[in-house]
């Protein structure tokens, strides 16, 4: 399989797509907040919004993905969370988006979308622990990292698989194709 084609969509089409993607990321975040997590470890979650972030990286590029991540984080913090949680999810989201974009653009031959998604989940958790470490001035929070890593592998594989199939289908839709 050749690496996914580089799509660079411009103008009004891009704006519309970006709004749809942002809305979808928001809805997935809200749905996710309704699902209880069985493990008492901060940071363990489904990461469904990651599907949308990775799709944005593939079809619109890194900058637009950052745009979606920042707006999603601001809006979900208003909906539920507040300033402290905003700090944690912004750090995790930006780090994870950067890592996924770099891997997707530079290392697509080595890593498929599943690997990229797992790496994104890992760095999302690492970014949050990093902020927790700075806030608490305590390295004890890294005690959670092994559990978070295992959950990142499981959930990253799941969302990566979804992105693989979703992006294959989206490529065939004429609206998304480059003009």
């Amino acid at each position: 399989m050749t690496p996914l084609m580089e799509f660079r969509i411009k103008g009004l089409k891009r704006l519309v797509l970006l709004s749809i993607l942002l809305a979808q990321a928001l809805v997935l975040s809200i749905i996710e907040s309704w699902i209880p997590v069985p493990v008492p470890v901060p940071g363990v979650k489904l990461g469904l919004a990651n599907i949308i972030i990775l799709i944005t990286i593939i079809f619109l590029g890194f900058k637009d993905a950052v745009f979606v991540v920042v707006l999603r984080t601001v809006l979900t913090s208003i909906y539920a969370g507040g300033p402290v949680l905003f700090m944690f999810s912004a750090a995790g989201g930006l780090l994870s988006t950067t890592v996924m974009a770099v891997l997707y653009n530079r290392a697509s031959r080595i890593f498929g979308l599943i690997g990229i998604s797992i790496a994104g989940a890992l760095f999302h958790n690492a970014g949050q622990l990093l902020v927790a470490m700075i806030v608490m001035e305590d390295t004890a929070v890294f005690y959670f990292m092994p559990v978070l890593a295992v959950s990142a592998v499981i959930m990253g594989s799941f969302t990566g698989l979804i992105v693989s199939y979703l992006s294959q289908k989206l490529e065939r839709i004429s609206i998304i194709r480059k003009d």
């Binding site: 890593f111 498929g112 599943i114 690997g115 990142a152």
Partner: peptide
């Protein structure tokens, strides 16, 4: 869908954890 790097990544992360 699964590339070599993916499998390598999973093994490394699980082993480290």
């Amino acid at each position: 869908i699964l590339k070599k790097g993916d499998i390598f990544l999973v093994i490394i992360v699980i082993a480290a954890a």
